[in-house]
């Protein structure tokens, strides 16, 4: 399968302008994949930025799970519905099909069991949206090749021994995982180093080089 086989999502000029207003582009992309008025669970919701975006711009019933006490308390104090919990454990407590979308934004690399988490997301939600930093990005590859050290960047600022990110993957690795859990890719977008989508339809291998981040919309079934 190549990106040509699926609906490639692209930002319109209007959306790109919104992005210039200071909102994280990957969150805008995710919000754009969510149908208005849906029930959404954001796993690893941080301080609730995406939840607020979904509630205010898409009219969603948006809930969050967040590991950090600070994130939960900040979000709940802003009136958002957030549960303090651990994606690696607590997704099991949700009933099948409880949500239209389950979102994992920039978090899958920090889970202990990425495959299990992805399976749970597709059980709890009819669709899953996953965004993650692409470790196949050319600059990271170059960094390792030239410097011989674990890459770090603005998006990946941690040192190897003190990082929450224990399961990095590349876009191609993730596409393999999607196949392993029998999910279908409905849309995919790669963001380049400037935070804008890689616009052209190219093979995964090229996305894997040019994309600093990727956002995937998945559904159940092959």
């Amino acid at each position: 399968m190549s990106p040509r086989d699926i609906a490639i999502h692209d930002l319109t000029m209007k959306e790109a302008a919104r992005a210039a207003s200071g909102k994280r582009v990957d969150l805008l992309l995710i919000a754009d994949m969510v149908a208005p008025g849906s029930r959404v669970l954001d796993v690893g919701s941080g301080d609730g930025e995406l939840l607020e975006l979904l509630a205010t711009t898409r009219g969603c019933d948006a809930r969050g799970i967040e590991l950090s006490r600070e994130g939960v308390n900040a979000g709940v104090a802003r009136g958002l519905a957030i549960i303090q919990g651990d994606a690696d454990l607590d997704l099991a407590d949700y009933p099948d099909g409880a949500f239209d979308y389950v979102i994992l934004s920039q978090t899958i690399q920090a889970t202990r069991r990425p495959k299990w988490v992805l399976e749970q997301m597709l059980r709890v939600g009819r669709r899953a949206i996953v965004s993650f930093p692409n470790f196949g990005f050319w600059r990271l590859r170059l960094d390792l090749l030239v410097n011989g050290r674990m890459p770090s960047s603005d998006n990946l600022p941690y040192s190897w021994h003190d990082t929450p990110n224990i399961h990095f993957c590349t876009i191609r690795d993730f596409v393999d995982l999607v196949g392993e859990v029998d999910a279908r890719i409905e849309r995919a977008t790669a963001l380049n180093a400037s935070g804008y989508p890689v616009r052209v339809n190219l093979p995964w291998a090229v996305w894997n080089l040019l994309g600093e981040q990727a956002v995937f919309l998945l559904s159940r079934g092959p």
């Binding site: 939960v72 709940v76 009136g79 957030i82």
Partner: peptide, 30 residues
């Protein structure tokens, strides 16, 4: 629709009756 927060406090069960800024902020927000 449910939120849940665990507040860091060493005051035991009585914490809910005492001055706990995080708890106050959450109550106000909710």
């Amino acid at each position: 629709q449910v939120s849940f927060a665990e507040i860091d406090s060493d005051k035991g069960h009585d914490a809910f009756l005492l001055e706990e800024p995080e708890f106050s902020a959450i109550t106000r927000g909710f």
